[in-house]
């Protein structure tokens, strides 16, 4: 029932084919260019052609952000645009150095290339995440809503409190421990992503061993309730871990955008400075072959 279509092979790998063809054409053209023009750089006609091509590509790539939010248009499909966005994005990593004749320095020109490279690389990470992480998500069951999660957890905690009523001190202490068990220490988005804090969250098996260790310390009359407490606690830990895992994947699916988007705008600024300054110092005469 599910078609195995994704952003990379959309429409019979249309954009992949375009990507390969363009890449081959670019390389061939560059070989000729480098052969005839002993000193390839951005300031001669052919070099500028690469530059204009790169600029065009960047503008189209940035248009994706707008296209994604233009909901009424039938100008291509969003899937097609994303597929285009990915392949042409990678292509810029080739076009732009060709424009510069593979010459880099410590200046605003190289800075804009570096920023662009960061954008493209973060985008590649994003592509990897988009293709692989939704599948991982399905391992953790149905997506939990925050409200649902809250309600469920509160239900467990309430039941635990009810169990600990009129019990011995040790039981109450164990109950309080159970309630705070498995709550991850670090709850910031990046900590969740890198599993920091949740590493010291108790795993279910750890907790089970501890339960068994403490069982003999519990009064005979409270043993049944203690076991009930253990079951509740295990269910709570399971739910917490599931929620955490889902959060982690959701964060990963989003986090790369926090690099991709800001850096792309920074790149746009650097690129503008690059273009303006080059034209300011060299004039338009360089566009004449």
């Amino acid at each position: 029932m599910y078609e195995d279509e994704n952003v990379l092979n959309y429409n019979n790998r249309f954009w992949f084919k375009i990507f390969i063809i363009s890449l081959v054409l670019l390389i061939i053209s560059y070989i000729f260019y480098a052969y005839y023009q002993r000193n390839p750089n951005g300031a001669n006609f052919v070099g500028l052609l690469y530059g204009v091509l790169g600029l065009l590509a960047i503008l189209l790539l940035m248009y994706y952000g707008i296209r994604k939010r233009t909901y009424n248009t039938t100008f291509g499909t969003l899937k097609g645009w994303l597929s285009f966005h990915i392949y042409i994005g990678v292509l810029t990593l080739v076009i732009v150095p060709m424009h510069a004749g593979f010459k880099f320095g410590i200046n605003v020109h190289t800075l804009s290339f570096l920023l662009m490279a960061i954008v493209v690389l973060s985008g590649l990470f994003g592509t990897y995440f988009y293709i692989n992480f939704p599948v991982k998500f399905t391992k953790y069951g149905k997506e939990l809503l925050y409200d649902e999660f809250d309600d469920e957890i509160n239900k467990f905690i309430n039941q635990m409190y009810i169990l600990s009523k009129k019990k011995s001190k040790f039981f109450v202490q164990k109950c309080e421990e159970a309630i705070s068990y498995g709550v991850p220490k670090g709850q910031k988005a990046w900590q969740i992503i890198f599993n920091i804090g949740s590493k010291n969250a108790t795993s279910e098996s750890d907790y089970l061993t501890q339960i068994n260790k403490d069982l003999h310390k519990i009064q005979e009359s409270e043993r049944d309730d203690y076991q009930r407490l253990a079951v509740l606690s295990l269910q709570k830990i399971e739910l917490q871990n599931r929620f955490l895992a889902q959060m982690r994947i959701k964060n990963i699916l989003e986090v790369w955008l926090y690099i991709h988007l800001p850096v792309s705008f920074a790149m746009l600024v650097a690129l503008t400075i690059h273009i303006v300054s080059v034209i300011y110092y060299n004039g338009f005469s360089m566009f004449i072959p």
Binding site: E5, V7, Y10, Y71, N72, T74, L78, K79, P134
Partner: peptide
């Protein structure tokens, strides 16, 4: 609107 339901058209990953 032409082009069918916006929800499907606006899904970037064919989900």
């Amino acid at each position: 609107i032409s082009g069918g339901p916006a929800c499907v058209r606006s899904c970037p990953t064919s989900a």
